[in-house]
Design a protein around this nucleic acid. Structure first.
Lengths: 247, 247
DNA sequence: ACAAAAGTGTTTTTTATACACCCATGC
DNA sequence: GCATGGGTGTATAAAAAACACTTTTGT
């Protein structure tokens, strides 16, 4: 069967192929567990179009650079952080989303591959030069953004909540050793206070058996010192692809 | 605050931007509920590279055409179908995934936006001209495919199973009126016999209240005639974004 | 000693699971 | 009248949800 040719190329000449530049836009969430806030990193646009308007940090993909490389590059240009989670979100590519493309002039098209990242606020240090035109915005206060970035942000937020429910992304963001309250606070800041009470959350997770108690105690001011736990990726393996592990 | 300019464009000249052609590759699943099989549509490649090898049906995006338009175009070129579900999967874009790109020659890059579609086998009519070099493959028998298409297929299959668990995509594929066994069979074909027994599946779904009994009976050979149900999208609204609705 | 944070246990309610069984039709 | 698929009910096990209570620290 292989090696045969069938006549199936279109009879009529098809319209020419589109030429693309590919952009990467990052939805970078930061978790401020102290103040129970979920923040997103916005930058002020320095160029047309949408000059002077807030937008998601992005860049255009360069020669020899993978999409993910580009996503990490944007991130590294804005913040310095040790632990982070990053994954691809969605690709927006309608021919009319960028005003640089005139609708009938068939010039270069712009396509945006969006990524979402999660970091903790306490360890995310802004490195942008001026520190003007870059800011963490509480999710509720996000203004009207450039391009279709509000839509991308909305999509990223939904993905974040879903991921948290079945996937161990929290442990990529937390330090190696963490307390169960650290974990619980992380969950409440994203999902809201009412997703579960602390005691039930705790019991459920411990029963699953992929959190190992190191025995080390951590004293943080007043109150009883908490045990430090470690995430055991091997013990988690059976729960991969299982829904609702964490809820 | 808007309208200000900061000096932040890189001091060193960055490497030039990459130029892309954008391809769309479709993972088209078809549900053969009669024989409890899940099939995927493969086409034999007619051009280099990978000439004569099986691959997912795909195309390059044309001028003025959106990504989704391109996905529908590929689909329409291969099959004719009334009810279908289609959504974007993932974008693969490393600089080395397509042998047409030489690794050091910084020419045009090829990026693939994958879509997955779901149709029912009984109503999906193949329209490809020769009918050679195009075939429905049972998921288990899929051979080594061109490019990274095995990986894309694997990814699509995972997405299909997950979507089925919380999202009402089944009703986009089923006809307007359907029996509960139609629905149950659809689920077992994708998720396997052991995901739930019929009586429990039935009770759970009916309790949720978004399936309305039309009262109309459908006789299909022997056995008691089944009630025809209709999916009530409005009544489903509260379950949007809720996980595990269907399991 | 008492507030604050960590950790344990118990009770109630809801859901999942596994069946057994009745109903309506074609042949 | 019996095989075939459709549809209902029930008993048990498991899990989710609510909340009361104990433990260990800092001040």
């Amino acid at each position: 069967m292989p090696g045969r040719n069938a006549k199936n190329t279109d009879a009529v000449a098809p319209r020419a192929l589109a030429d693309f530049k590919v952009g990467v836009d990052n939805v970078i969430f930061s978790l401020d567990t102290d103040q129970n806030r979920l923040l997103v990193l916005l930058v002020m646009r320095q160029d047309e179009p949408y000059l002077g308007q807030w937008s998601l940090p992005g860049t255009l993909v360069r020669q020899g650079e993978s999409l993910e490389d580009a996503a990490y590059r944007v991130l590294a240009e804005k913040i310095r952080v040790k632990n982070l989670y990053l994954e691809q979100l969605y690709t927006f590519g309608g021919p009319e989303r960028d005003p640089r493309e005139s609708p009938d002039r068939f010039g270069v098209r712009y396509l945006s591959v969006s990524y979402f990242a999660l970091v903790r606020f306490v360890e995310a240090e802004l490195v942008a030069v001026g520190l003007t035109g870059i800011a963490w915005y509480p999710l509720k206060d996000v203004p009207k953004l450039a391009f279709d970035h509000n839509q991308i942000l909305e999509y990223g937020y939904r993905r974040l909540r879903n991921k948290l429910e079945y996937s161990p992304i929290a442990f990529e963001v937390l330090p190696e050793l963490f307390t169960l309250s650290d974990l619980y606070q992380l969950y409440t800041t994203v999902l809201g206070e009412n997703f579960s009470d602390y005691s039930n959350f705790r019991a459920r997770l411990l029963k699953l058996g992929f959190l190992s108690d190191t025995g080390i105690k951590a004293s943080r001011g007043a109150g009883r010192p908490a045990s430090l736990y470690r995430f055991d990726a091997e013990a988690f393996a059976p729960f991969k692809d299982k829904p609702l592990v964490f809820i």
